[in-house]
Design a protein around this nucleic acid. Sequence first.
DNA 1: TTGACAACATACTGATGAGTATGTTTCATG
DNA 2: CATGAAACATACTCATCAGTATGTTGTCAA
Lengths: 212, 212
Amino acid sequence: MISIANTTKLKILDAAATAFATHGVDQTSLDDIARALGATKGKIYHHFGSKGELVCAIRKHSVQLTLDRVHPYFAAEAPPHEKFHAMAKAHATAMISELAYHRVVVEEMRGSGTGTITDNEHNLRLEITVLQSKYEDMFRSVLASGIAAGQFRDQDLSVTVRSFLMMLHAPIYWYQPRGPQNSHSIAMQLADMALGAVLVTHVKKSVTAIVQ
Amino acid sequence: MISIANTTKLKILDAAATAFATHGVDQTSLDDIARALGATKGKIYHHFGSKGELVCAIRKHSVQLTLDRVHPYFAAEAPPHEKFHAMAKAHATAMISELAYHRVVVEEMRGSGTGTITDNEHNLRLEITVLQSKYEDMFRSVLASGIAAGQFRDQDLSVTVRSFLMMLHAPIYWYQPRGPQNSHSIAMQLADMALGAVLVTHVKKSVTAIVQ
DNA sequence: TTGACAACATACTGATGAGTATGTTTCATG
DNA sequence: CATGAAACATACTCATCAGTATGTTGTCAA
């Protein structure tokens, strides 16, 4: 948190996130990022131990940003389906609002990363894992309440959480700030879909079927 | 299609897909793939013009495999919600069954790829785009029918398709062949969730709410 | 049987980029 | 005003690969 209060570090993080999100982590050299900053590699290496640490810092920041947006709705008092919808919408809004940071996270979700891993990077990875677990646990908790209340379908929680979170990540792949839809309506639709994905399913008789 | 009837090419494709899916495209050298094949780079370059073409071949194969699994259910006669559920389940099953190929597709979804792009690769990319469009159109069509029938929620089709497809991609990130769940139950749950995501939402009164 | 081509292996080049070693400047502090 | 350290810039090294150029082997048709 102190590290992010540092203005210079944050500028580097922003530039790096933007570049990584645009061209991919592996296709972006530290010289590229430095150029975008109007500086040189020396500046980056003075603040971050390695490229891997830089990526981890972006990932951690991404998770933290998302958590900050979603947690208030988790803490508030509300029935499961309303709470879930609000949290889902907040998550989608986060994806759209800080697109670059979250893109990096998704790209690194496969697991590998760079070959050499510093101690500092290793610790960062652990912290990120802990944060992500805590984050998922919030949703797990709400889902459990909803299932207990008979509103949500009783199914494997791990699969459920990972699945609808992937759906909420969708804007990362296609959202463009200058697109026709505003971010609010997209976030709302995604939240609606996420809620539908967990609710007890109720298929209405088709209108055409009745007509026939 | 003729190209894939070639046994040697398919073996290279399999080895490449496995390696790419495990360590990431950029972290995997052609020498690595050749070693996995018990051969050298020469073999690969004899069958594929560049690393980019190899990746494209994997992507195309992935889309084709998925299409082959889903299309029968699209062609069959059934009410929208049943057809959609069957297609979604087939998609999820495809993801799990040919995990490696589909992982490569998702990793390359950001858009960039290698710097140099051969003519051959460019054509492959166009073919892939066409295939993917046709694929999405199938779902778009079913969704339109369901909306017309009053079963599916009337919302932006593009957002809908891209979103629940992302959810169906989820197993790519965490499914392990030796996992506790069998592939069938996971595919079923994902299909259930996808259907719920598009159906007209119907929130049951909470049991606890009634008790209170 | 011979040449011609497919199907590779071997050995190189060349560029790219992460990381480092070593300046240089600013600035706070004693 | 001296001095140290923070905050960079500059100029390297060195390993990694994608791509290429060329050699080798088998096979088949004329």
